[in-house]
Structures are given as structure tokens and as C-alpha cells.
Design a protein around this nucleic acid. Structure first.
Length: 743
DNA sequence: CGCCGTACGGTTTTT
DNA sequence: CCGTACGGCG
């Protein structure tokens, strides 16, 4: 508690202002590395410690669950266990909790399922099928993303239909309505619904609204530039009673507009709260001046932005290293070598390094190189654990036990492991359910009743089911299996339930019968069981609910190993630029600085999206504390074939004097592609006849025949990277010293 | 009706 | 290169 005073001493004046601003709306515009996480944590501590606010009356919303955990850790460090009562989480997790608590009062099934991207896709497929929409003319993904955008802007199906002006709009309007109906039938909410339903709840139920408005004396929102309209409205409603809303963001780091994040929220905030106090945090505590200058040069290319001054006391630092490799293998090998080299120096640990890329698929080459070099790494995201088939199967059973109306889960495992209920039968049942106007699970129950010759109370009187005898028998068994598992769930902890699922379905045997890589898959199932065991302390029903909720709302950034691992245990981080937001590393490698990758080809025809690519690059660059490496490859393999990408426009925006060594890998080949990249002026002359270029065959007296894969011009010499055919492998040689012969 | 083989198409980012 | 869609066989 006494800590507060000396904490305030450590802060610079704007930070102190942000922490101690007493009441009312507050907008903090924070540059990268300005210590904003620290400031929010301090502010929470300050409110409790100095202003006497009860911790449970503070709501702080972060972007990822990991950020929430980190925030909680910081606040607990200041306040002790009292801080555990602060309401902390992502918008989605906070909403899920509120909806679960209020479910009965607002007529929402308490056991609603949460649908992720893949589940939504499965649902929208049914919608377009039902509406006879040709997926070749109108992609399901486009329809879904239009629906999602409407929901993030709090546009109801009815309102959307009213404003639809073209044919596509009509189709989406019809799909939207049907999609929502289907979600309801499944007792499911998608990610957007979590927010939308919460806003609706607060708008329509006065008692509930007043309860929470009264409770939350202070509302704080981090990463405000990445909130969508619905999320902003939610924060506004919650803060309306007391008017204490503090939002923190950086327009230059807005990288989620494709997920309907709306940068205009920042402008609207100033409009909605004219009395808002605005604090600028412009001092950077993270990066060296060179890194900051380079990043600034890149972000300055955006037209739509407010100029901002960023400064640091950290001095010049190392120049930015730009490396041009022959292909992605060499790019990766350069990184592995550089990391190995720095690890050999004093004070560097694995966790000091991160390799960042635009798309998940790019991690592959890096992984291979690090593996070959024996460098430990952790891959963030990629083929995510919870997206693996075997994990999804087991989860689907758990979801069904929790909510048997979940049609997506049901169709997933109806015939997994195979029990003779094929697609045809599933379709028959679904059609039948539709004509009866009941959920598929209810139809299955009726079928079971009919098979046993009875008609239990509470189920609609229906015509005879359309399923053939053999398949009907299999369905009876399947429904029996679910019943049995629900019985297990009611009385046992989560891992017992999961064991029950595996045992009764014979899932292990199924894996080993059907898959080559069954070992690996079974390991994943066991890993899932380990996670589930963490919930065994909870009451039977609660364990399952919390587990499913956490699984649905977990993000890949949440899986990053926390600090606290022994230094020797650290790992190099491989991460997408998007996921890297909010993180920092001593050394950062950004790969594939190429036109078409970063900026991504999909942004070429839209200036707005191009600006977002630039911000993405800026986010990546500003993750670096001490060293920043920007890499590109002359050729890159993607989807089987090789392609050539010109250097990224963002590279050209960086002043040459900030760049250490301009590596020139494939000059000769490069010229053929007329790449106009600016070169460092003071490049020392190299004797013309001595210049080797990529692809040339050479002979070395000791290493034998090889191919030049890269050459770097430096200090009047050339450093050649040569792949030799024999034992020697890949070597780096100086032109002036190596007795090389052109072949 | 279900299962297994081959051809083809589509590929950003994620709470 | 990977997963899905379709066609023939048991």
C-alpha cells in the first residue's frame, strides 16, 4: 500500500497524470513502448489505494487473456490478494460470464455453446444450402464476414434487410436471419453474439443494466484502437452511470479492421465525451533511437494519421540489419546463425529472440532451420491445438454432453468413430427435423422413442421417421451413448467424464485403426485430458462449463510461455505480426519483407488496407528493444512453386543511414527483375571480374563443387554463402581469402 | 448406403 | 502442399 508513493516517483509527468487523473472520461493515446500496461496497472492500484475504490467495482478489459493475467499479476503485486476481485478479462470472456450469470433472467439457455470460426462456417453452409445460394457465385466466407460485420456494428437482421440495396445484400439479409435462427435452435452464440447479446441485455433489462452500471465505478479499456462498435457501446453503457471510463490506445497500432475493429471509436470518444481528458504518452522506454526512427519512417508513409513525436533516452543503438537471402531456406539459416552467434555472447538467452511473419505458413522454414541448428523455439498459433481433428472430436462429445442441441458438434461426431450413420442418413434426419420444426437432437429422441414403440410425453407427435432400420438402430445406440455420458457428467469430475467419452466411444482404437500418425494424435488427446484435469476441483457441472468456455475463448497469444521459466529454459518465439502486438523482445527478425507478403497481396487494391499493412509492419518493428533484422528472399516457395517478390516498399522507406549492411545477394538476377531498391551510396567498389552472383557454380580446392546462394558486399570485399555438394555443406567465405574458381 | 480412392481448388491476419 | 469434393466399388 505504501508502495504507491514511490511508484508515482518513478513515472514521468504524463504517465503520472494518466495514473492519478481523478474521475471522468480519460483518453490515453500511448505510443509503442510507452509503458501503457504499467500505467493501467498503476491506475487500478491508485484507484484502490488512494481513492478508496473497492476492487470488485473496477472493470478492466484487455485484448487477450494473457494480457489480463499479466495485468492481474501487476495489480496483485501492488495491492496483494485484494486485487483478485478486480473484474479483468477480454470483452468476450467478460460478456460470456455476464450472460451465464443472467441467462435465466433474459431467457437464454444456461448451457449455451460458444461457436468459433469453424463452427460458424459449418452453420453458414447449412444456411446457404437451405436458401439455394450457389457457393461458387457467392462465397460462404464473404456472406459470413458480412453478417459478422453487421453484428459488430449492432445491426440486427431486420435492420440489415431494410438497408440491403443490391442482390448480394438481399442474399446476406436472408442468410443473416436464417443464421441467427439456426444459432438459437442450437442454443449457441458465436463470438459476435457474446457482445451483441450482452449489449441487448443491458439495453432491454433495466434492472440488470442498473445493477452493473452501479457496480462498475471505473471502466478501463486497453487496446482501444482495436475495439469494434459493439464493444465500444458496451463499455459506454457500463460506464454511463458513473462516467469514469478510461480508454488506452494507439491509432498507429490498429491492425484488426478486418475483424471490424473501428478506429473511429477514438474520434467518437472525443465526441461522446467532450469533457474527456487526453493524455499523450510519447516517451518510448523500449527501443533504441535507430529502431524508433526506422519505425517512424515507415509509419509516416500513412496519409490517414496524426503526426506524433516519439522519443527515447536510449541512444542510437545498433543499426537496422537488412539481409537479402536467396530463398526462404537461406533466410531462415541466417536467422539461426545469428541467434546462435548472439547466444554465444554474454547475456543473451533464447527468450530474447522473436521471429515474426505475416502469415502462419511462413513459420515452417524457420522451424526447420532452428531445429537443424538445435535452437529451442516455441511456435505461437499456427495449426492451433484446439483446431486439431482429434481434439475437436473429443471436445464435440463434451460439448454435446453439455448442450445436445449443438448441431455442429452433433454432426461432427454422429459417425465418428464410424458407426454406420453416413452423410445420407444425417441429411434425412436433418430434413425430417426441419419439417417437424424441432432441433435435430429432439428429432433423434423421437426416432429413439419410435424405435422402442413408445411415445414419451413432451415430444411432438410426428410421422414415422425416414431412416432405414440398420441406421436407425445405430442412432438409437448413439443417443443411448449420449444419455449415458450425460449421466456420468452429472456425478463426476471433468477428467472422469473425458475418460468416459474415450472409453465408451473406443476413440483410441479408432485413432490407431484409421490414422498413420495415431501416436501423435493420441498424445494430443492425452494433452487435452491433462488440461481437463485442471478443472477437476470444480463441481461436476461447473467444471464442464468453465472448461468449454475457456477452450472457446482461449487465443494463441495466451499460450505463450510465461516468464518465470528458468533462464536456460527460454525459447525463441515464432509468431505472426498480429499476435506479436503488446509483446517485446531484445532482438526481432521480421521475415519476407516483400511486396505481396508484407504488404500482403490482398491489400494491393485498397489504400485503406495498405495503410493497415504499414501499421502491421510498424507494430512488428516496434517490438524490438535492441536489435531489429529485416529480411527478404530473392525467391520464395509458396504453394509448391517458386516466386519472385520485389523488396517491400516499407524497406525503401527506411533512411539508408539507419541500415547497417546492405546485403546484396543476387545482384545479377536482381537486375533482370529491374528492382529499383535504393542502395547505400558509400558502397565500396568491388573488382568487376571478382563478383560472383547467386546461382553460379564454383570450385574450392578443399570443399569441392558448390553453388553460390548468396553474396554480401561489405568493406570492399564480398562474403559468399556457398552450398557445397560434398560433406562441407553450406559455408560462408570471404572472396578475398577463399581460393575460388568459377566453373 | 457407406467407404475409399483420385482430382481439383484455394490459400491473411484471430477474440 | 493440404483439405475437401466427387465418383466408383463393396
Amino acid at each position: 500500500m505504501v508502495a504507491t508513493e514511490h511508484i508515482l516517483q518513478e513515472l514521468n509527468p504524463p504517465q503520472r497524470e494518466a495514473v492519478t487523473a481523478s474521475a471522468g472520461p480519460l483518453l490515453i493515446l500511448a505510443g509503442p513502448g510507452s509503458g501503457k500496461t504499467r500505467v493501467i496497472a498503476h491506475r487500478i492500484a491508485y484507484l484502490v489505494d488512494r481513492e478508496g475504490v473497492a476492487p470488485w467495482r473496477i472493470l478492466a478489459v484487455t485484448f487477450t487473456n494473457k494480457a489480463a493475467r499479466e495485468m492481474r499479476g501487476r495489480v496483485v503485486a501492488h495491492l496483494g490478494d485484494a486485487a483478485l476481485d478486480v473484474a479483468l478479462g477480454t470483452f468476450h470472456s467478460v460478456c460470456a460470464r455476464l450472460l451465464r450469470v443472467e441467462a435465466d433472467r433474459i431467457g437464454l439457455p444456461r448451457s449455451f455453446a460458444i461457436y468459433d470460426d469453424a463452427d460458424q462456417m459449418a452453420l453458414i453452409k447449412r444456411v446457404t444450402e437451405g436458401l439455394n445460394i450457389d457457393p461458387k457465385r457467392f462465397s460462404e466466407r464473404a456472406i459470413l464476414s458480412t453478417i459478422s460485420r453487421a453484428k459488430s456494428e449492432l445491426v440486427s437482421p431486420r435492420a440489415f434487410a431494410g438497408s440491403a440495396s443490391d442482390y448480394f445484400g438481399e442474399l446476406v439479409a436472408r442468410s443473416y436471419e436464417r443464421y441467427q435462427a439456426l444459432l438459437e435452435e442450437n442454443s449457441a452464440l458465436d463470438f459476435d453474439d457474446l457482445i451483441v447479446k450482452t449489449v441487448e441485455m443491458l439495453r432491454e433489462h433495466e434492472a440488470i443494466r442498473e445493477k452493473y452500471q452501479e457496480r462498475f465505478l471505473h471502466v478501463l479499456v486497453d487496446e482501444f484502437q482495436d475495439t469494434n462498435v459493439a464493444q465500444y457501446q458496451l463499455a459506454r453503457i457500463l460506464a454511463a452511470r458513473h462516467g469514469n471510463i478510461c480508454v488506452v490506445g494507439d491509432p498507429d497500432q490498429s491492425i484488426y479492421s478486418w475483424r471490424s475493429a473501428d478506429i473511429r471509436n477514438i474520434l467518437n470518444f472525443e465526441r461522446d465525451f467532450p469533457a474527456a481528458r487526453i493524455v499523450l504518452l510519447e516517451q518510448n522506454y523500449r527501443s533504441t533511437q535507430n529502431i524508433l526512427d526506422a519505425a517512424h519512417a515507415v509509419i509516416s508513409g500513412n496519409q490517414q494519421r496524426k503526426q506524433k513525436s516519439l522519443w527515447t533516452e536510449r541512444g542510437g543503438g545498433e543499426p537496422i540489419a537488412v539481409f537479402e537471402a536467396y530463398d526462404e531456406t537461406e533466410e531462415a539459416e541466417f536467422i539461426a546463425r545469428e541467434i546462435a552467434r548472439l547466444l554465444g555472447e554474454d547475456g543473451w538467452a533464447h527468450r530474447d529472440f522473436a521471429v515474426m511473419y505475416r502469415t502462419n505458413a511462413q513459420s515452417r522454414a524457420i522451424e526447420e532451420a532452428l531445429m537443424r541448428a538445435g535452437i529451442r523455439y516455441q511456435l505461437v498459433g499456427g495449426t492451433r491445438f484446439y483446431e486439431r481433428r482429434e481434439v475437436k472430436d473429443v471436445l464435440a462429445y463434451l460439448r454435446l454432453v453439455h448442450n445436445p442441441y449443438d448441431l455442429v458438434g452433433l454432426t461432427r461426431v454422429l459417425n465418428v468413430p464410424g458407426r454406420g450413420i453416413g452423410a445420407k442418413t444425417a441429411q434425412q434426419v436433418e430434413r425430417w427435423a426441419q419439417t417437424l420444426g424441432v432441433p435435430v437432437y429432439t428429432a433423434l429422441q423421437i426416432l429413439v422413442a419410435q424405435e422402442s414403440g413408445s411415445q414419451p410425453a413432451g415430444l411432438p407427435d410426428a410421422g414415422r421417421h425416414p431412416v432405414a432400420a440398420r441406421q436407425a438402430k445405430a442412432i438409437v445406440e448413439f443417443v443411448g451413448l449420449l444419455d449415458e455420458l450425460m449421466g456420468v457428467a452429472a456425478k463426476n469430475n471433468l477428467s472422469t467424464l473425458l475418460d468416459g467419452v474415450l472409453e465408451r466411444t473406443g476413440y483410441r482404437r479408432y485413432l490407431f485403426d484409421e490414422f498413420e500418425d495415431a501416436e501423435q494424435r493420441w498424445e494430443n488427446v492425452e494433452e487435452l485430458r491433462n488440461v481437463a484435469a485442471d478443472y477437476d476441483g470444480l463441481a461436476p457441472g461447473n467444471g464442464l462449463v468453465s472448461f468449454l468456455e475457456d477452450v472457446a475463448l482461449i487465443s494463441d497469444a495466451d499460450t505463450i510461455a510465461d516468464e518465470g521459466e528458468a533462464p536456460s529454459e527460454g525459447r525463441v518465439t515464432l509468431i505472426t505480426l498480429h499476435s506479436a502486438k503488446g509483446l517485446e523482445y531484445r532482438a526481432v527478425f521480421i521475415i519476407a519483407m516483400e511486396e505481396g507478403v508484407l504488404p500482403h497481396v490482398r491489400s494491393f487494391d485498397d489504400p485503406g488496407q495498405m495503410e493497415e499493412e504499414r501499421r502491421l509492419c510498424y507494430v512488428g518493428m516496434t517490438r524490438a528493444k535492441e536489435r531489429l533484422y529485416l529480411l527478404r528472399a530473392f525467391r520464395r516457395y509458396a504453394m509448391g512453386s517458386s516466386q519472385h517478390n520485389p523488396p517491400s516498399r516499407f524497406l525503401r522507406d527506411i533512411p539508408p543511414q539507419l541500415i547497417a549492411q546492405q546485403s546484396a545477394v543476387t545482384e545479377a538476377s536482381e537486375r533482370r527483375y529491374q528492382a529499383p531498391a535504393p542502395r547505400i551510396d558509400a558502397r565500396p567498389p568491388v573488382p568487376e571480374d571478382a563478383v560472383f552472383s547467386g546461382g553460379e557454380k564454383v570450385r574450392h580446392p578443399r570443399f569441392g563443387e558448390g553453388i553460390v546462394v548468396a553474396c554480401v558486399v561489405a568493406n570492399g570485399d564480398q562474403e559468399l554463402t556457398i552450398a557445397f555438394k560434398g560433406e562441407a555443406g553450406i559455408k560462408r567465405l570471404l572472396l578475398s581469402l577463399a581460393p575460388l574458381e568459377r566453373m
